[in-house]
Amino acid sequence: MSTQDAYEEYYVPHNSKLPIFASLGIFLTVFGMGNMFNETKAGVDSVFGEIVFLLGGLTMAATLWAWFSVVIRENHQKLYSDQMNRSYVWGMSWFIFSEVMFFAAFFGALFYVRFFVVDWIGGVGDRGPSDMIWPEYVPHWPMVNPPNPELFPGPAEIINPWGLPLLNTILLVSSSFTVTLAHHGIKEGNRKKLVNWLALTVILGLTFLVVQGYEYYHAYQDLGLTLASGIFGTTFFMLTGFHGAHVTLGTIMLIVMLGRALKGHFEADDCFGFEAASWYWHFVDVVWLGLFIFVYVLGS
């Protein structure tokens, strides 16, 4: 098919009710969340925020469901040319790039505090004699002794990388392999292979989440390592937390793909939905490797 022909078939939907609902959904979600947070902070006893948040979440979920259904249906109707599919490929790639930059902000924050601020607060380095303010403080990473221990009580201990985190690394890395094997399944037209490996990937993902949940529990209960235990806890939970949120999202995507695979979707030359989910999964995996190295191993 020449580019010229492909181009002529570019499908432009006439109009769509989906986006306005998605806008409304996102608005209600964040508006509800804002109210929730502010009510909690002000000590107001009200469920207004929760209700709006829930409404927003449901609207969002329903709209996304409908949206993807429409896209899948259109694809099955063969409305999409190769060129159209390329648009989706590009779109997904740039979306992942934006996610990379989001994590970059948090990694940047980690490096900055770790390599500069920890020392500067103790008056070490060329920023100024800040130790005037914090005479008791000794620069040390991981920071178990925040300068103001009353406001930010430091953790008793931090997580040992060679326990649960190592297990999680193994889980995620192997899930990257399994998802690739599932992809091979599509390419070979072997649905059973696809379904089995994909299901295993989902199980690995879920196990990862359970392990991480347990790790958090352990950190809070036993180690005194919390969001509020100073910058170490802050960066630790923010980075691993956002990563966990992305794993959750990725797992949901994979579950949806599993459902579609069971319904008989995906052909060797038509499986972008699956591929997008698997790219996302690989991206999440790579971020984890970064976390494992910079937060867990080099952090301790």
Partner: peptide
Amino acid sequence: HFGTAFFNAGGGGD
């Protein structure tokens, strides 16, 4: 809202 210390020197932030 959650007591983190990104921008608070008391917790090791800046």
